[in-house]
Design a protein around this nucleic acid. Sequence first.
DNA 1: AATTGTGAACCTCTTCACAGCT
DNA 2: AGCTGTGAAGAGGTTCACAATT
Lengths: 223, 223
Amino acid sequence: MIVRTKESRTKYGKIADATVGRLSRYYRTLKHLETQGVSTVSSEELARRNNVTSAQVRKDFSFFGAFGRRGLGYNVSDLKQNIARILGLDQEWHLALVGVGNIGRALLNFRQFQEQNFYFTLILDSDPAKIGTRIGNLEVKNLDHLADEIRRAHVDMAVLSVPAEAAQKVADQLVEAGIKAILNFAPITLLVPPDVTVRNENMVIEIEHLSFALAEGSRKIER
Amino acid sequence: MIVRTKESRTKYGKIADATVGRLSRYYRTLKHLETQGVSTVSSEELARRNNVTSAQVRKDFSFFGAFGRRGLGYNVSDLKQNIARILGLDQEWHLALVGVGNIGRALLNFRQFQEQNFYFTLILDSDPAKIGTRIGNLEVKNLDHLADEIRRAHVDMAVLSVPAEAAQKVADQLVEAGIKAILNFAPITLLVPPDVTVRNENMVIEIEHLSFALAEGSRKIER
DNA sequence: AATTGTGAACCTCTTCACAGCT
DNA sequence: AGCTGTGAAGAGGTTCACAATT
């Protein structure tokens, strides 16, 4: 019943989450370089732009194949396409937004998702005042009909932005409905079966990292 | 010029970022337990609720002191207070929001920040149509006057939600203005001096983790 | 009897360093 | 000569296992 997400077991073997995250970053760099008309890039250059070592860059790629040419570097377009394939960005993904609050509404308008082929095709909420209203070209559906609606909309992933109290119960329903990937904005640790991937976007934790860093040594006495 | 954020060097020694993140999670659990009227908790129970091992919980605490009683467990209120102190949650923090877009606006209304003593006291943007308008009880200030405004508002941390193209330049200005902590929503790797802490909230990376997980094995051919 | 606190073992991730291509 | 790809070494984080304490 328990998942520790430090790695993913895949057809490539065990891949560290950190590696996957860096691939996303390299991908963004490569897109940028491509628009700049740059055709070739070295691991050294990718490293510099992403604040890692060049050995790290090469090692990250090595789990998936050999994409470069010794003595020359990497072809920007080829490498970009390879990473897109690895990350699954060469296909469309359909998202369900579960919970239409502040954050949820912002995500619906978040262009970067669409730019990477992630599309919201379903919106769910439990608030009768919201159910039936339209946001963009989607109608807010009743959370009580979660399983049916998810099947109908061919949803691949769920973006969970409900209050903390409701999050685990909704996660259970998502799992029950067959969802295998959840982006969780609720500030709790979701417990899901091992075949379900959860990624957390926990802004309170991140800001508390910052206060931890600042609170060190120079503790402020008063404001 | 380069920062790898895997740990923080502090008065407690080197503390892994993962430990700090877990402290935030334990803290949330303790708050919950306190409202439930629970007065004592074991490392086993904290572990279960946060999906880690009990040894991990005890080790995490051990970097900061000995907060429990052998044979009995931890006093919920005491432990909560200790973690609050460690994380710097026993004081108010003033935030600047830099960039008022979708996400920025949602963050201004994000209650959990205020509940943890994080308050926005300054809003900056470069768009003339936004400068001078009011959001809540704050006036949007001109990004060009960043340093002055930050000094005036006694800002501790910046929340950066400007477009990727502008992010590094704004980060440089924040650093120049003396800011030591940045919560970055822009989808790029910010390069900052070692004494500046950056935490990234990169939703595109997180969702690409999910597509990586789903793309594995069962690659979908068509939709 | 129960549960913490922690050194040591273990495991995972990063970096080194160099052989192998271009 | 330049740069990749990778086995081995190194660093760091997690888990074990048990002495210490209530």
